[in-house]
């Protein structure tokens, strides 16, 4: 075999779907009518998609920060997979938000240009972000990463599961794709929570501390912003208060198996959904947006 033949053999995509990472993306929106359905307010749909999209974008960022720092190489691959899944969800949701923005019945909301996913990700300031604060907290140790992933993905899976029957077909399709992914994330986090909680004295202590640090942020997962209330009423969104029972049951079961105490429920509140964030989000955005903002109008 000559060198050139070998290169040719390798360049041929004969079983790339089986081996290559990062290729073979399916379009989950193929064949779906992307127009905003009757009875759905474009501005509300956009605002709602931003909430779910920002959650995924910021959570993905925190997982990206783990890259090259994971406790074992196999876990590098797993965390990167989860970060990629969430980034994919964020892109679809931001794109949907951008497309829906110009279609509101409110005349003042009409804009000529559709905002792209990148315009929304890189050119909004912190107060315009709509993610819950749980995802913006700075990273801690691996126990912190795992407990946050457990809380986040348990909550998100419950939301996405209900969104598969959203009145917005695009949101329903994004949710259908996301359910499979987030179910895997939740499993991953649950298995690790049990290993760490019921592992060594040190791992138990660290996991318990992570739970103490993160638990207060769970109240925000069930606070109902007015956009969410209207989205639920119009049939394209979910009232987050409705998923609390499922969250409590799943998290309670995992913590029991992990020999960890289940903290008392935190009163629901609205903060990040209304644009109230910690300083951590500003620092995160400075890192994420710096280069894009240094070259306004550039294509990458």
């Amino acid at each position: 075999m000559s060198f050139d033949n070998a290169l040719g053999a390798i360049a041929e995509d004969n079983d790339e779907a089986r081996w290559a990472f990062g290729t073979g993306f399916h379009d989950p929106l193929a064949g779906i009518d992307a127009s905003v359905p009757d009875g759905v307010d474009g501005a509300d749909l956009a605002a709602y998609c931003l909430m779910l999209g920002d959650d995924a974008l910021v959570m993905s960022h925190r997982l990206q920060e783990w890259c090259t720092h994971a406790p074992e190489l196999e876990e590098e691959v797993a965390l990167a997979n989860i970060a990629l899944d969430l980034l994919g969800q964020a892109r679809l949701l931001l794109a949907r938000a951008g497309a829906a923005m110009g279609t509101g019945q409110d005349e003042t909301a009409l804009t000529e240009t559709v905002l792209t996913e990148d315009a929304l990700a890189f050119f909004r300031d912190a107060p315009e972000f709509r993610n819950v604060r749980l995802v913006e907290e700075p990273n801690g140790d691996f126990a912190h990463a795992i407990v946050r992933l457990l809380l986040f993905s348990t909550w998100r899976l419950a939301l996405l599961d209900r969104l598969t029957s959203s009145a917005d077909p695009v949101l329903a399709a994004v949710a259908a794709k996301g359910v499979k992914e987030v179910a895997y994330h939740r499993d991953h986090a649950a298995l690790w929570t049990i290993r760490l909680g019921d592992g060594t004295e040190e791992s138990h202590r660290r996991t318990r501390r992570a739970l103490d640090v993160l638990w207060p942020a769970t109240g925000e997962l069930f606070g109902v912003h007015e956009v969410e209330r209207r989205a639920a009423a119009a049939g394209f969104g979910v009232d987050p208060a409705d998923v609390r029972a499922e969250f409590d049951a799943v998290v309670g079961e995992v913590l029991a198996a992990a020999a960890l105490p289940c903290p008392a429920p935190v009163p629901a509140e609205v903060a990040g959904r209304g644009g109230a964030h910690s300083a951590a989000l500003g620092a995160l955005l400075a890192d994420m947006q710096g280069l894009a903002r240094a070259h306004p109008g550039a294509t990458w």
């Binding site: 779907a17 089986r18 196999e74 691959v77 797993a78 997979n81 499993d187 991953h188």
Partner: peptide, 11 residues
């Protein structure tokens, strides 16, 4: 699970 991530990309 690691095998699924590494060798099949969760196919």
């Amino acid at each position: 699970r690691n095998a699924r991530d590494l060798y099949t990309r969760r196919n």
